[in-house]
Amino acid sequence: MKPGCYTALATPFTPDGLRIDQKGLEQLIDFQIANGITGILAVGTTGESPTLGWSEHNAVVDTVARLCRDHCLSIAGAGSNNTQEALNATAHAVKRQVDAVLLVDPYYNGPSSLEIRREYVAPIAARFPGMEIIPYVIPGRTGAQLLPEDLALLNQAHPNVSGVKEATADPNNMRRTRACCGPDFLILSGDDAMTFEMMTDPAIAGGGVISVLSNIAPAAVTQLVQKLAAGDRESASTLLEALTPLFGLVTVKTTETTPHGDVVCRARNPLALKTLMRLLGMPAGPCRPPLGKMTRKGLDVVLAAARQVWTENPDILKPIERFFGVRIEERLDDPRYREELFYSDY
């Protein structure tokens, strides 16, 4: 893999949520390619991999691999909390000639870092030495964590483990990864809001991002990474400021009132992202249960962020207008476009 901006692609569903919207999926991929993305990740968290059947999972990988070929790089999500499933998914990705696979730390059953290395990543890296393997470290989702020391041991034993998607939100962990793994190891941000810090901190020396927000703004996020890689911190800072209103959409927290008192409601990725995609007229469809809809307050947060970007930096969203033939101002202002996007009560 090479440094750059990779989109963690959302999976579009039909309005009833029962099937993948194949035409919409192809449109989303073409939109990314047209806007200069470095690569596309199929069926990650943003792609709702937990609610895809394996036949659906493989079908999305097939489409991404086919359409990316000769245009940009492709990554297949292949992680599981079952090593055999991950081996099977990686074998499928190899057959489809993707450029890399992403292996999220095993979730729920909570293996130690030692076990993640020996019983999960290493067997897959050894079975498929010609495939780039990218561990995905996100303890806030998985309850487990591959530590920098074990990551370095993997890299030493298996040269195809040459990068990581880092989503610990802990700069000290990132610095430790760089210290353990050396200067040539690729550290990709797994959190849009931390990309700037990761790429400007010489003790981290991040190489780019696997981005959620590039579903909406692939050109702008790609330019941010390119400016940072070129050392143009001033231009990158301007882009960062323009994109910042969107960073909060990865997780939207609101306080909701119930008959028993106030509660915090947390709409996690990809719910807010897909809500915005639907609002703007992009193929998305609903999230699959157990993800559902936003609250009215949550939708207001999404609307406020989109309106701020559209008012202050419309060039970030204009590619959507051109590619999908929509009028963003109309879609942000007309209540008809948000009728199905939120729960009417708590």
Rank of each mutant, 00 (worst) to 15 (best):
P283K: 00
V221D: 02
L41R: 00
G39A: 07
M1R: 07
Y343E: 12
C72F: 03
S214W: 08
T258F: 07
Q84K: 14
A122S: 15
L146H: 02
A304T: 15
A229I: 08
E48Q: 12
K95T: 09
R233Y: 14
S344T: 14
E241R: 12
G4T: 04
V98W: 04
S235K: 10
S162Y: 01
L102K: 03
V212P: 00
R118M: 10
G281Y: 09
R176K: 12
Y136C: 05
S49W: 12
R331A: 11
L279S: 02
V61G: 02
R69M: 04
A76S: 15
P286C: 04
D334W: 13
Q22H: 08
I204M: 00
E132A: 13
R278A: 09
A10F: 07
D315F: 13
F13I: 03
T244D: 11
D184F: 11
L73Q: 13
E330W: 11
A76H: 06
C72I: 04
R141W: 04
R322S: 13
P139D: 08
D62M: 07
I124V: 12
M282Q: 08
G4F: 05
R69N: 03
P12H: 01
K253I: 10
R278K: 09
A86P: 05
V221G: 05
Q84E: 14
H92V: 09
